[in-house]
Nucleic acid binder design. Sequence first.
RNA 1: GGGCUCGUAGCUCAGCUAGGUAGAGCAUCUGGCUUUUAACCAGAUGGCCGGGGGUUCGAAUCCCCCCGAGCCCGCCA
Length: 574
Amino acid sequence: MASSENSATLLYLYFGFARTVLLISSCNSFGIETVLYFTMLFYAICPYIICGKNIKWHGFSNVHWADVAAEQLMKKGEKHVLATAITPSGPIHVGNLREVITTEAVYRALKDRGAKAELIFIADTFDPLRKVYPFLPEKYEKYVGKPLAEIPCPCGEHENYAEHFLQPFIHVMDELGIKPKIYRAYEIYKEGRYNEAIKIALDNADKIKAIIEKISGRDLPEKWMPFNVKCEKCGKLKGEIYEYDYPFAKYRCSCGYEGSVDLRKGGIGKFPWRIDWPARWKIFGVTFEAFGKDHAASGSSWDTGKEIAKQVFKYEPPMPLVYEFIHLKGKGAMHGSTGVAIAASEAIKILPSEVLRFLFMKYEPNRHIEFDTGFSLLDLIDEYDRYERIYFGMEEKIAGMKDEKRVYELSQPYGIVSKSPIKISYRHLAIVAQIAKDFDEAIEIIKRKIELKDYDETRLKERYEKIIYWLKNYAPEEIKFEVKEELPELKLKNDEKKFLIELEKNFDGIEWDAEKIHATIHESAKKSQISAKKAFQLIYMLFIGKDRGPRAGYFLQSLGKDFVMKRIREAYQS
RNA sequence: GGGCUCGUAGCUCAGCUAGGUAGAGCAUCUGGCUUUUAACCAGAUGGCCGGGGGUUCGAAUCCCCCCGAGCCCGCCA
């Protein structure tokens, strides 16, 4: 396959050559023999120029981005620590999800290459609460500035504020098959694992200050120190060090309190982000980290972080991978604080976990992703199914697909399924789910046309539940239908009236059964000489005010005979 | 002002690393299916590849300039 692509390329080269010869001979202007000679020479050596030393006859490979990153890491060594970090200051959204899904994909790619890799997740639970977010009660004002891990849980059911937002996210990671070693910054500080870094940073305060001022262009206060003490009186991370004499530091808090701390004790304060980041690289031996483009802007924390790592902590910065933000369709980038966000725990309720992974796998990290909870959601799921069929050889790859098998593999939360389940178009399922009372009835409806095995039913169950949730909370009105309480306004032509009268007459004598109803509609249409298409359109108009709808027989059956007969009468009498 | 990303069919995007006849899905339209589960099957319509220059026999692809869109650049993360 790939080598035939190569042959095709060579063919093109020679076609081009032939065209050139024709062109030149038709022009027949000057030095034609010389031109021909060089042209031929060029094309003769062209394949070698193109492929060079690395002639890859199975080449033209398009390698998945996760594999590209893994390959680069393998060149550096076979032991890696891949870090992800999120601050649980509010609901953790789909945008944050990219952080862990992207990193985990590289982690898997490394594992596939036999590397020793570790995936870690650091929850920044020691960060202070920045402000009273819209989703918080007013009384949280008094906690602003305190560490997230020391603030009460908003719902009262979790250990603290940080856990309240962290737990649902950990659950989502689990559903996605992402199982990192989880650390909480609050504990790490408390256990003293930062202590050495704190001493190094404070000893090198001037150096750090110079790096930040030079690279970010900021002006820091003259006596700036790269560490915030947690005030012993108010508990906020607002203590500024004004006198440093290891192991003690005297600080002044914004609340007015002045005190002194022993820096050898854990958890007495915290680094600002720009120092925290490089410090943690060294503490955990991080060799790879993916981060959002906000960190990557010039002069931002990546620029200062890598210098601080090298010059102060004497640590080689990890390999970076910058990812773009997730946009909510039509509303811009997701941001917890602006409210433009879909919580990760919400996304997993409307999308099967493998499809949620798929969304991140199929785009390169540097592309922004439009997350749409509307119709595109259905297309996304159907697209995933197509990848699955291709993976199992049930369908041919279509043009425009990239690394389709690898994308599919990396989308699996828990390994490749043993066989491809029967595919029901998701759009179709959305209709069936609206006709059926419950899952069992939905299965019955589907089984009328398609044979299902137990295995397929199990797979469908998850999708059914998710689509029900979606229909209830996100689906656009166009896909929903409901039976009109009143007869919609209609202008019936004579033949249409005739059809309805005929229909009523025929319905009267039959058993109220889907198949019979359906047959009767066809018969009546024939008798009154209107097309079946028109007949069905008319029926849909009568009951749901649209010219299309769910399969008529079953639909009318579920509405009940009395209701249907009454509506038909009303229609032709109007 | 600095940085990153993007601009290809109505929409969502492949194709660009390594130049060789412009692609897919969805949407739309037409036809088929004498059962319409908004299904399924077949076909069609649809693009000066953002604009301009350059390199080349040949540019969506490489180089330069411009235009437009989005995001990031105090602190915090």
